[in-house]
Design a protein around this nucleic acid. Sequence first.
DNA 1: CTGAAAGCGCTAACAC
DNA 2: GTGTTAGCGCTTTCAG
Lengths: 335, 335
Amino acid sequence: MATLKEIARLCNVSVSTVSKVLNGKGRVGESKRRKILKVAKEIGYTPNYHARRMVEKSKILTIGLIVPDISNPFFSTLTRGIEKTCGENVLVILMDSFRNLDREEKLIKNARFRGIDGLIIGNSRVNDDLVLEISRYIPIVVFDKDYELKNTVSIILDNKHGARLATTHLIKNGCRKIVHLSGTSELYVSVQRIEGYTLAMKENNLEPKVYLTGYDEKSGYKKMKELLSKNEKFDGVFCVNDLVAIGAIKALKENNMRIPEDVSIVGFDNDEELCEIITPSLTSIHQPVEEMGEIAARSLINLIENGDSKIKKYVFSPRLVIRESSIRNRGEYSV
Amino acid sequence: MATLKEIARLCNVSVSTVSKVLNGKGRVGESKRRKILKVAKEIGYTPNYHARRMVEKSKILTIGLIVPDISNPFFSTLTRGIEKTCGENVLVILMDSFRNLDREEKLIKNARFRGIDGLIIGNSRVNDDLVLEISRYIPIVVFDKDYELKNTVSIILDNKHGARLATTHLIKNGCRKIVHLSGTSELYVSVQRIEGYTLAMKENNLEPKVYLTGYDEKSGYKKMKELLSKNEKFDGVFCVNDLVAIGAIKALKENNMRIPEDVSIVGFDNDEELCEIITPSLTSIHQPVEEMGEIAARSLINLIENGDSKIKKYVFSPRLVIRESSIRNRGEYSV
DNA sequence: CTGAAAGCGCTAACAC
DNA sequence: GTGTTAGCGCTTTCAG
């Protein structure tokens, strides 16, 4: 390996002289300087990063980012926001858990042994004790979970409010029998959305009906097919996310239901690509994903550098984006 | 900071004893062992990663991944493939260039000063000299560019063949006037696809017509609108990617053209999410993105560990995935 | 069992 | 100008 020592030997000078030349510090005779530069290039010298970090109080930060699935648009956009905030001197180590809980736990546990200075955990299912334990060692930013730990910042979307917005919109728009395809009951996000949905229904003296699903298109399709075959009656659907909504739409179409005339439908996440491509275009609840990523990164960096953060929790507000899938031409409601 | 030294002091033992206990090596008296473990936990000791790497010939690798836009499904899926291959002991540093050439160059140049052992560069526009220079220092895997350098592996999709497949499919399916929305003429990928398209047209004594576009939905929409307003005649469209195709479809629909009856259309990339959601569903050329990511990671790791690679180039074959947008009910062609 | 000592590659005082 | 020295935090012989 090419080292300073090696160059020093080749040039008959001391290691520190080489170091000075290569770092442009101190004064060194022109002839030596040239020779050192030449040799360094020849043998392809690259300074040992770890050795450097040992001795410098380097300002380079390394943060770990854990996501359940980087190919999911929500998380890739989140990642984009994080990357945006991390300039030259913050390295982002991406870790995809592939929605495998064991793997996720292992990744979180091992982070601090990997030179990682802080962790951003996107929407995980790991238990709180683990976060509590790990946060003793490195700062953590978590999404959609509410911790009040010293070394931790929470980034939260007001999911309850979002769900209420969606449901109320359907109601105002003339729907009376609205069902909710909710995702699993384990995820905090889903729990909150179920609450918001239920609240809105009760406020309007309507009966809430929650159906558990997964989070992908397939599970939305499957559940909707099931409801249709059971001959369930409904005129509105609120879905836990856009993918589930898209699956549901597919099933509804196959059964010749008209959207939004027979059944109105609202998604969540507002992935513009998806929402606008599908026919009819999909009304959805927008969350400022990229911005949330930026804040996450900024908070983490601050947490690492200052050991603590004044603001322990950021709550973002969702917004309703109305498209064709929920607007009936009855004049009962207009944008 | 919590260090071995600190623990040693607190326990009245030597640093090496502490090291042994914490690493479970060598034999140490039970009482000391317990005390050391206890103190280490109390003061929240985490071994210094860089110090460790200095002395161990650690098997942990750090690879850098440069993409133009992580929120683009192609690259997030690619990333997924890479992550899949990198187990416990390979760290992936994600770097998004945001399609900024300056930033991309800087990222590539700085990688080796950031403890990065090798680089995967996704579909870049950096000039070849830079790659040549950097590959002297660290191994590089590049996409869609054909290098024959010692320290480099190329991962390539046979774009020409893919374009030919798409075009031939349209021809077999009864189209005679096929236009190509091609992206820009700078990107190698586009050049290859144009060639394949042209070849297929000529083979069938048809006249190729290439129209430059961008790579997003908007530019597909815009170009198609333009063609329609100019009253260009065509019965088939081959697009450089799915997004452009989707934009084109939108424009065609607005002008009340029937797809595939009036105009058949084929995309490229086969992003399943998009291709299957749109109405009509979009025929496309599939490239095994995730697999390409896996191979990229595997090659790079091999390159890092062995200094060179037998295989300098992987060429992947595209595949035609037929959906509604190109199948006319004329019985001229069936799947 | 336990600790002293060397050394990983580098930077930074501090002499010469 | 230039080299010597110390030390970053850790692992690993090697004596005792």
